[in-house]
Design a protein around this nucleic acid. Structure first.
Lengths: 342, 342
DNA sequence: CTGTTAGCGCTTTCAA
DNA sequence: TTGAAAGCGCTAACAG
């Protein structure tokens, strides 16, 4: 293995100066820098990460801890997150350490161990909760981390998120502007931050549209077809008056909703309008819905690059303002939404 | 962060002796060892991996490099491998570095980079080819690795594998013993080592059963329902005489075969016997096939533990004989196989 | 059984 | 613009 010493020897320089040249320090002549880099390339020099870590405190290692649950495999999310992040970190010459816990293993000790070893520069936190213990622990331990989503109303951490509140406020407003008043929100699992933001946006829009907040109809559940199907059947076999519009937290939920409405003999959008948010993690084409599904569109695969960038920034001590990024989305109106009948 | 120095100070010992105590060296009094370990525990001491690596050459980091292909996500294998290995290495206090390459990125430079950095102790190689460039590179670079499967007839590397040749020889013999002579093998992708071993076992069994090797019927393809379906339709719309038994490389293939046979109006096992190898990575219950599917059963999820163990052994320089493990399998005869009714 | 000394490969003062 | 020297935290000779 080529070391700095080898490069220095070949360059006829001291190790110190060689290191400086390679790391683009200002006090190196351009000529020297070029020459040294050339030699390093020829010799296939790669800085030893452990040595660098020891002195600089950086190892270039970042971690993701995923609890092992039985639905890990079926959930398309895991693979998306893992392969996306791995790819992005590779591009940045960082190593991506993946830790899948034991089924019932408490998660904080895992972080403790990983942090204690001192090998990992920072973490990516996915699937944040309103009251997230991982974030609390890492903050206290002063270990950099980036959250996929936001924790709390005024977060002090690095994050990449989409504006869930705005998105769902927009969807709800759109439907109410069409004339809908009994609008259902089939939301995600309750204590997830994104679900909270979404229901918040939904409620705000109701108020904006002078619909009494007590008329809010929210169901919480996993992002599955079953949830969409069961909720829909339940809602439309309940007491009159029936809802006229359904907002789905995901396309997968929408799939279940379509099935249920179809089974109930209800027509989209004549009897019921359906709107969904599409993060593209279900391998489902929304154009292929019949009638084509109206969606807000924000591919989750676009998250991994900014997440990696934010974590890199957090590790190198960039100001928080640069590390809090909210991604874009598009609204795509198709055939599943219309004014309610009569 | 607690360092060895802190522990030593508290124990009133030298750093050296403390290190020895913690690492279970022989020349430490039992009392001291106990006491030191106690203190380390209290202080939540965790050895700094980078420091250890620097001096001992071990970092506790192991790597897996996965090429990013479009079917990464749909293929249940990726998630199984990644979560399985991650879990097993966590248990051994090793860190699992996952590297997903760019779509068309050549893979050897990735290993070169990872190895050059000197941070990774060893690699797991999955999906080996007959002529595997990764293995060749790592061997030459003298970097420990373990293969999921075997490369070549007399491998010099650590591996965990099942006895594919024996398994498929057994299946074929079983069918020929029932009286079948026109037996199809729907094998995996051609240049994969396991597929080669399987076709080898199949051919041997033909010879054993005095069936002319020229009567071998082998199709190669991906482990998909489509492959099973298309192959079956093709075979049974070809010229007489038709096959009477089909051996499937995976349960997923068998699924396609069942569909095709059903569509062709052929009955299992009256017209055609079907046998499959079940590695449990398709989320498919073989009992739920109708008629229930006869299988050889060797869950792939049982591979991760021995793979991790072998890699750990390879890194610590255990003799090769201990690092070459062949896992067990069971034969489960159900209703999909019977004597042919001529 | 225990301590002293050296050094892994690198970055960073400090001095020239 | 450059080099010498110190030290990150740990392990492994080498003495006692």
């Amino acid at each position: 293995m080529t070391t700095l010493k080898d490069v220095a020897k070949k360059a006829g320089l001291s190790i110190t100066q060689t290191s400086r040249a390679l790391n683009d320090h200002s006090d190196v002549s351009a000529a020297t820098r070029e020459r040294v880099k050339e030699i390093a390339l020829t010799l296939q020099y790669r800085p030893n990460l452990s040595a660098r870590k020891l002195v600089s405190g950086r190892s270039g290692l970042v971690g993701l801890v995923v609890p092992r649950t039985k639905d890990l495999a079926s959930d398309g999310l895991f693979i998306e997150v893992v392969s996306g992040l791995s790819t992005e970190f590779s591009l940045r010459d960082m190593q991506f350490v993946l830790h899948v816990t034991q089924p019932e293993e408490p998660i904080i000790p895992v972080y403790k161990r990983l942090v204690g070893n001192g090998a990992i520069d920072g973490f990516v936190l996915i699937d944040p909760r309103e009251d997230d213990r991982r974030a609390a622990f890492l903050s206290k331990a002063k270990v950099p981390f980036v959250v996929h989503g936001r924790i709390g109303p005024n977060p002090k951490h690095a994050y990449f998120d989409i504006d869930n509140e705005k998105i769902f406020r927009g969807i709800t407003r759109h439907l109410s502007a069409l004339g809908h008043r009994r609008i259902v929100l089939l939301n995600g699992i309750e204590d997830r931050t994104y679900a909270e933001a979404r229901s918040c946006g939904y409620r705000h829009a109701l108020v904006d549209s002078r619909i009494d907040p007590s008329e809010a109809i929210i169901r919480s559940g996993a992002m599955t077809e079953s949830f969409g199907l069961i909720s829909t059947v339940d809602l439309f076999s309940g007491p009159e008056p029936r809802p006229t519009a359904i907002i789905c937290g995901s396309v997968r939920i929408a799939k279940g909703v379509y099935q249920a409405l179809n089974a109930l003999g209800l027509s989209i959008p004549r009897d019921v309008s359906v709107f969904a948010h599409d993060d593209h993690i279900a391998q489902i084409q929304t154009e292929a819905f019949y009638p084509a599904l109206s969606v807000t569109d924000a591919p989750m695969r676009d998250s991994w690059k900014p997440l990696a960038a934010c974590l890199e920034g957090a590790i190198s001590g960039a100001p928080l303002s640069e590390l809090q990024v909210v991604g874009p989305y598009r609204t795509i109106l198709r055939q599943s939404t219309a004014a309610p009948c009569q």
